[in-house]
Design a protein around this nucleic acid. Structure first.
Lengths: 337, 337
DNA sequence: GGGGTGAAATGAAACGTGTCAATTTGGCGA
DNA sequence: TCGCCAAATTGACACGTTTCATTTCACCCC
């Protein structure tokens, strides 16, 4: 249906090869011919078929972006960065929502393999690189998103989550809180475990006790539910540290329902600093990550590897998190119960 | 690098055509041969090249999703629906963030044309279908997202925005408000004009005056700024209706800074009912759209047209909006100034 | 036993591009 | 006038599929 190079060649009365040269090596073509071909291209509205180009090249100028939760504003901000970087280099982004399910992630990895994507940006569901090994063997550029590379086979762009967890814990400790609660996500989410490690380390060195509770997912609803049942089980704490902002927002809802005030009764700290953290019921103290920059850097990394795999050296880009103090945290005060 | 059908054929000692038959017409192949071929496929980890398939077929099993704001949770919820429907049918979604800029939209449409996508889901920046006409001529299935089709050349999946705007206005009017403010987005955003029309109609029939102010973008920040300067210009109203929730959240921030309480001094109504509307500083009264369902239905529509263009009849699927009343609206009370 | 039948497998062509060796053209010096 | 060189252009091939007309083969029936 769409015009092909053959049509262009016919209209400009030149050979196929010349059209190709006009597109890829204009300096090899006589000016007059070039102008004629370019006119034919305009007249026909010719746009090269990416599929044919890719078939020839072996790989597509396509990136796969695999995120665990498309509805989380955090990842969408990252996606914006990825997308901008991709568009700059003429790449296209395939959106893959693994929904925190290994099975779905696997399905998407197969799809991406079938698409012969040049690179994959992934915030993996599991810690292992095994599901990616086939892709890596086939020379697909993979960059880990959000957590530092485990192996030397891949690039990674991440934020220092250990530090971030530490920042959150130290803030709570400085405010005088002595009984911390860590609201984690489902076990094994790679990017959360570092936060937990940093937090626990800070707590240990301050000799502060931490109670760990876990939500079933990294969502507002799950945060609400988890806090609800924790409170029902008699959880008693003055500072709540959450694995991400969504959990925090959900937890605050549950706290309010239980008649607990934030920050008067409980201080709450989130993680990610999504846009809505600032306009939440109680503006949320949170650990900010440079989300857009993270996505942008990761995409540049992976595109760099695509374009020039030979000279590419795997890198780990790491950003620094930053604690943003808002209204949801306050000094610990003696209990009046 | 990756194994091809030729490799599979060689390993199973059959011809290329037979391998193809095993994949596409298994009933034409003797069972013993089929098993042998399938074994070879497994051994080699063969995955067909989507590019080659598409080159042959002329079109790719790929959808382009063009949204004006990837950071808006509304569109990401829609995207979830699109993505699920696509995955079910073996399609893949290319994410295109037009950022409300016509130029960016055009750029992406060219990219999608180059990718020879089978279908496009688009929440257009402009009202005209002109930028899409080339795609349509080439037989690309296009479905309009969010606003009803203007022409009969395309499908659309939308929510009745006229009704939605009316719901918002009627709610405010029922609460006794007589001076309404409509906080619109930048001029010409198609999906907003229907909301405005519905609102204005309801206001006219109730003989209520509406002041129109406009934000530069459909974002929290723009809502904040717009409300700020409106207040500085002496805007005085008791009910604020916003073109979407992000604007509403931003406007509330500005109102609070100006010392105005929501809903005591001003009632605020949003639009979209994004997840964070419920956990906002003041839980937001909003007009809910079935977002996931909208995306899902739109994707099914466009995939249907891709798969069987001949028998396809263009449709308009329209969902109903629903007013969700929360804490940000209250009865009008006599001014105490 | 020969001819016909249907199942199974084959091989070539086509999709649209990029590459590259081979060919043509024009200009210039001898 | 001839030959040579660089510049410009050509044409064939490969990439990995699918399709389809053709071939091969075993079997059954008269």
């Amino acid at each position: 249906m769409a015009a092909s190079m053959k049509d262009v060649a016919a209209r400009a009365s030149v050979s196929l090869g010349t059209v190709s040269n006009v597109l890829n090596h204009p300096d090899l073509v006589a000016t007059s011919t070039r102008l004629r071909v370019e006119e034919a291209i305009r007249d026909l509205g010719f746009i090269p078929s990416a599929a044919a180009q890719q078939l020839r090249a072996g790989r597509a100028k396509v990136l796969g972006l695999v995120v665990p939760d498309i509805a989380n504003p955090y990842f969408m901000e990252v996606a914006r960065g990825v997308e901008d970087a991709a568009l700059e280099s003429g790449y296209v982004v395939i959106l893959c929502n693994s929904d925190e399910q290994a099975e779905r992630e696997d399905r998407y990895l197969a799809v991406l393999e079938s698409q012969r994507v040049g690179g994959i940006l992934i915030a993996p569901v599991r810690k292992s690189l095994k599901p990616l090994s086939r892709l890596l063997q086939h020379g697909v550029a993979v960059t880990l998103l959000g957590n530092a590379a485990i192996s030397h086979d891949v690039c990674s762009a991440s934020v220092d989550d250990t530090l971030g967890g530490g920042l959150a814990a130290e803030h709570a400790i400085e405010l005088g809180h002595t009984r911390l609660v860590w609201l984690a996500g489902p076990r094994d989410i790679p990017r959360v475990s570092d936060r937990e490690a940093g937090l626990m380390k800070a707590a240990r060195s301050a000799k502060v006790h931490v109670t760990r509770i876990a939500a079933a997912q990294m969502t507002t609803a799950a945060g609400d539910t988890a806090m609800d049942s924790a409170l029902a089980n008699g959880l008693d704490a003055t500072a709540l540290l959450c694995a991400n902002d969504l959990l925090a927002l959900g937890a605050i809802r549950a706290l309010n329902r239980a008649g607990l005030k934030v920050p008067d009764d409980v201080s709450v700290i989130g993680y990610d600093d999504i846009e809505f953290a600032a306009s939440a019921a109680v503006p949320l103290t949170s650990v900010r990550q440079p989300k857009y920059e993270l996505g942008y850097a990761a995409a540049k990394l992976v595109i760099g590897e695509c374009e020039d795999p030979a000279t590419h050296a795997h890198q780990r880009v790491q950003f620094q998190p930053q604690l943003i103090v808002r209204a949801s945290t306050a000094p610990s005060r003696p209990r009046t119960r």
